[in-house]
Design a binder for these strands. Structure first.
Lengths: 195, 195
DNA sequence: GTAGAATGAACGGCGGTTCAGTCAACGATC
DNA sequence: GATCGTTGACTGAACCGCCGTTCATTCTAC
């Protein structure tokens, strides 16, 4: 086990392959070919096929949450923080569509099959959003009776759905363009009197 | 091929089995056992395992869209229509959690694998929501520059995320209780001044 | 007796995993 | 510097269990 970034190469290959065919329709040998190595080599670095997916998921989600945390750390205004999160979320999907496709699709399966493994990483992202919302409530910028948990899920769900449509669709527009309207609608609402 | 509701029994059994284990981790023989028939019998009514899922999906989504259409047909106020859709969405998930789990999880795979097969049914639901929003804009009840497509995806995504959390979680609360806050946040927004 | 539905054991191929063999790098010895 | 031995990563053909699918046979209703 010399090569220290061989696991990374395998994960990167797996992202491309899983994005193309889905996890269950991908062969371990497909991942190997994509990585330019033999099928058996994968088993020097991962115990099972499942472990590739779990590792991939954990690693990328952890990176992602850290990135978002950093991006909003220097910002004082909670509303602006939300705008940044949305913008960053879409930017990331746009720049890494293959990774996005895997995370989007397997996320739910993940909830089911890798409960312990992935729940932590996902809920960390929810926590980031929820913390900002709570902050906004305390600062009086958001309704003080706002149900934070519900609002958190709504924002995540909204972003996730826009992302899914874009990823699985023809991608004939820039997802980033949706960031501003999504943030605005979430923050201000759709009522004519709610401007 | 006498028994006219045998296919229905198979689909109902499949819903329970797929909900429990996921599509790819379910055996055809599991579905058969759950339905109280032999494995071979399934192939008198369905050509392949895939066809069970596709049929299930089409049938339930079509039913669902028809139900929602009916429920809002008698209502004039677009805002109230949205409230009804949200309430109905959550009520349906709550009453049919197994079905919900299958649709939630396989929906995305479905987008990928059964493009032609499922895209139509899903987009019909999006159309129902989009039509209501457009109606609201025309009636002056919603912002006139509202990006309807984005808002549609946001509402669907928000409902879907609440539903997913509830379905895959411990279900220690009534999902229906979230209907009012979700509708209110979507309609009025989260800004303190947006009430 | 017959038609056609239902059965479930058996088939076949697919694919995750293994492992005996290959190869490359490196140190030791001359 | 050439030769050899050793180590351990790497290979990929083969293995083997799994499961979707089939079909010869049995059952049932009329």
């Amino acid at each position: 086990m010399r090569d220290p970034d061989k696991p990374q190469q395998i994960i990167d290959a797996a992202i491309r392959v899983f994005a193309r065919n889905g996890y269950y329709n991908s062969r371990v040998s497909d991942v190997a070919r994509e990585a330019g190595i033999a099928a058996g080599t994968i088993y020097l670095y991962f115990k099972t096929k499942d472990e590739i997916l779990v590792t991939l998921f954990r690693e990328k989600m952890t990176e992602w949450v850290a990135l978002v945390r950093d991006a909003i750390a220097g910002e004082a205004d909670p509303l602006e923080k939300i705008r940044r999160i949305v913008a960053l979320h879409f930017k990331m999907i746009e720049e890494h569509p293959a990774l996005a496709e895997v995370l989007q699709v397997e996320l739910r399966q993940g909830h089911k099959f890798f409960r312990g493994a992935s729940a932590q990483e996902v809920s960390a992202y929810f926590d980031v959003i929820a913390d900002v919302l709570r902050e906004g409530v305390l600062a009086g910028r958001l309704r003080k009776e706002l149900p934070v948990k519900v609002a958190t899920k709504m924002l995540f769900g909204a972003m996730d759905q826009l992302a899914t449509s874009w990823v699985l669709g023809s991608r004939g527009y820039r997802l980033s363009e949706a960031a501003e309207p999504v943030a605005t609608i979430f923050l201000k609402g759709v009522c004519a009197d709610g401007v």
